[in-house]
Computed example of a mutant assay.
Amino acid sequence: MTNNQNMGRVAGKAAWVTGGGSGIGRATAIALAAEGARVAVTDIDGEKAHKTAVEMRKKGYSTLSFQLDVTDENQWQKGIELVLTEWGQLDILVNNAGISVAQSITDMNLAQWRQVMSVNLDGVFLGTKYGIIGMKRGKGGSIINVSSASGFKAAPGASAYSTSKAGVRLFSKCAALEAAQTEPRIRVNTVLPGGVMTPMWSSMEGWEIWKEQAGTEAELWNKLAENTPLKRFAKPEEIALAILYLASDESQFVTGAELVIDGGFTA
């Protein structure tokens, strides 16, 4: 254990980050660990979660990793018991795992619609449920659900994604009100990123065609950010810093809030 874990903004806390194998989840896991937390890194791709954890351990951080399908309640039950057995507490849960389907409503099939809802909305429900259950066995804590600016602003071809992320927004407020009535106190907040440079984009159908049309990947990122007032997409680390704030005791009086991080896109 390094000195970083003896002092820091979330020192002594135990955290769990879903979708931690890449993008915002990976950046968040590293940011929390750098500020003193022990971090469980999970992902549908267990190997990616493991690689993130190995990288963190090389820096002296305390971490564990395991495969997690956020739509599987049984895996959540096993996961919470593993974290509590390992560390005896859960103080921070970041429901970050998510997927997107870039399809028009008429081209999308019901299975695709349901898959997005299952991961993006059901997964957040299960994570919040078991996060609250785990935190009640300790001293309370902070749950941060990752929604999206797309939950505010509609876009063609993103109906499933936008609908699921809008659902995360209101669900999180309901959860915040319920959790505020319990002892120990548990806070629930939402971050809503705009465009972020994550692997989710490059995994979307059509990415290679878009890149070819733009000329280079850098030019494609610039084109995608044209409607963002700051004229760029965020780095995952910038979203992770906002999550770190909501995870820390600096935000003790913040619950049911929405922190929009979108470069002015929804202004």
Rank of each mutant, 00 (worst) to 15 (best):
H50R: 15
G20E: 01
R38H: 12
T52C: 07
A31L: 04
R26A: 11
T52L: 06
R26E: 14
V54C: 08
G25E: 05
T28W: 01
E55Y: 04
G20A: 15
E55F: 07
A49H: 09
M56I: 07
T18P: 10
A27H: 03
R38C: 15
A40I: 10
V39C: 00
V39K: 01
G20C: 09
T18D: 06
A29K: 00
R38P: 06
G23C: 10
A33T: 04
E47Q: 15
A29T: 05
E47R: 15
V54P: 03
D43S: 11
E47A: 15
I24S: 00
K51D: 13
A31Q: 02
I44G: 06
H50Y: 14
K48R: 15
D45W: 12
E35Q: 11
I44A: 13
G21T: 05
K51T: 14
A53S: 13
A53V: 06
R26K: 15
H50P: 04
T52S: 08
A34L: 05
G23K: 08
I30W: 00
D45R: 13
V39Q: 01
D43P: 11
I24H: 00
K48W: 09
V39M: 06
A53P: 07
S22A: 14
K51E: 14
V41K: 10
G23Y: 03
S22H: 13
I24E: 00
G19L: 03
I44Y: 07
V54Q: 09
I30E: 10
D45P: 09
R26M: 12
A31Y: 00
E47L: 13
A34D: 12
G25L: 09
T18W: 00
T18S: 13
A34C: 11
A34P: 06
G25V: 02
A49G: 15
I44F: 14
K51I: 09
T28V: 08
